[in-house]
Computed example of a mutant assay.
Amino acid sequence: MMLEAEARWAREWLFDAALPLWWQAGADPSGGFYEKIALDGTPVIAPRRLRVQTRQAYAFIEGGRLGWPGPWREAAAHGLSFFMSHYRRPDGLYRCLVAPDGLPMDETADLYDQAFVLFALAHAHAAGIGDNDLVATARALQAELTTQRAHPVIGFEEATPRVLPLRSNPHMHLLEAELAWVTEGVTEPFEGVARAIVELGATRLVDPQTGAIGEYYDGAWHFAEGDAGAVREPGHQFEWAYLFRHAGDLLGVDHRAASDRLYAFGTRFGIAPDRRAAIFAVDAAGAPTDPRARLWAQTERLRTALVFAAAAPDGEVREAFVADAHEAFEVLKVYLDVPVAGLWRDQWLADGAFVEEPAPASSFYHILSALAVLLKAGGHT
Rank of each mutant, 00 (worst) to 15 (best):
D16M: 08
W22Y: 06
G26H: 00
Y34R: 09
A38T: 11
L39N: 11
R49N: 07
Y58P: 12
F60S: 01
G67C: 09
G79L: 01
F82W: 07
S85Q: 06
H86I: 05
L93S: 10
P104R: 14
A120H: 08
G128R: 12
G130Y: 06
G130P: 00
G130M: 07
D133H: 11
A136R: 07
T137C: 12
L141C: 07
T147L: 13
R167L: 08
M172I: 05
L175G: 03
E176M: 05
E178K: 14
E184G: 08
V186W: 10
L200R: 05
G201P: 05
I213K: 02
E215P: 00
D218E: 03
A224D: 14
E225Q: 05
D227P: 15
E239H: 11
L250E: 05
L251A: 01
R256W: 14
R261H: 02
F265Y: 06
F269V: 03
I279K: 15
F280Q: 08
V282W: 04
V282A: 15
V282S: 15
A287C: 13
R292E: 13
W296K: 08
E300D: 09
L302M: 06
A309Q: 12
A311C: 09
F321D: 10
A323M: 01
L336D: 03
D337P: 02
D337V: 05
W344G: 02
A350F: 05
P358L: 09
P360T: 13
A361K: 07
A361N: 06
Y365D: 11
I367G: 10
K376T: 00
